[in-house]
Design a protein around this nucleic acid. Structure first.
Lengths: 140, 140
DNA sequence: TTAAGTGCAAATTATTTGCAGTAAG
DNA sequence: CTTACTGCAAATAATTTGCACTTAA
């Protein structure tokens, strides 16, 4: 077995790697987001709730500001799947999402199972920034 | 040249076809939406603005309620492309959209130029309701 | 005449911001 | 020390709702 560097403070490394000042709140949130190396999709409210559950002292406004800072730094991506609230994704690569209507959860869809053989050309004078694919699911 | 039935009141027919009571405001809005047979993508505020411009007397709340009623009746579809506001589409079939970052406009992307050769399977116990494809464009 | 539709204004929900206090480099 | 960060409370923005009034059937 090999000792994996950063296993205990992946969040802090993740922050400093982007040149963000590692304050107590940011480290705590980063730890919740990328502490275990799993991809995560959540709303500001959800992150705030799990921080509170974990005994962290953070304000909701800071959670919002922090998520925005992480996105600006390229550490996360904001995704648009449904209606009112924003979801934030720790996986910044382009990939499809499942949106579960009943729980309003967002999860990754297996990217290797998606194959877009042909995509519309960008109209004159434009370029494609990205292609969002959301597969909406209903429990049966 | 042939006389096309409904050219002058396509909106009213569209409404009654869905069993919606054709009130003055609804007919006016319907006319703006499908009066010329073109597909339209707009926000509640935009529809409200064009109604006011056309001299119609409608309240913003009614525009919201009406768009919701049209969606519930299956006459339109709500689409999620970006952030805060909702867009409503008079084309209820499944098709890809262009989202223009600079103007925040939504337009149809040519559906014949999109070919999804493979799509992820719906997870156990779920079915796919629809697949949203949004191609985000930046002016260059 | 009667249930559905309309218009306000007030309520909600998601998110941002101003500013005084706190902490990281 | 100095500037960025944080927390709160107030400000916005988009949308919904309660309720008295109007209107289509």
């Amino acid at each position: 077995m090999q000792v994996v560097s950063g296993t205990l403070n992946r969040g802090a490394e993740w922050l400093s790697g982007a040149g963000l000042r590692p304050t107590r709140q940011r480290v705590a949130l980063a730890e919740l987001l990328v502490g275990d190396g799993e991809d995560r999709h959540l709303t500001a409210e959800e992150l705030y709730a799990s921080a509170c559950n974990g005994g962290e002292k953070v304000s909701l406004a800071t959670v919002y500001n922090t998520l925005r800072a992480f996105c600006d730094a390229g550490l996360m991506r904001e995704i648009t799947v449904d209606g009112s609230k924003s979801y934030f994704d720790t996986n910044t690569t382009s990939h499809p999402h499942f949106y579960w209507e009943d729980t309003q959860a967002v999860t990754d869809a297996p990217i290797d199972q998606l194959y877009i053989a042909q995509l519309p050309d960008a109209p004159e004078g434009t370029e494609i920034v990205n292609v969002g694919v959301v597969i909406r699911l209903r429990r049966v």
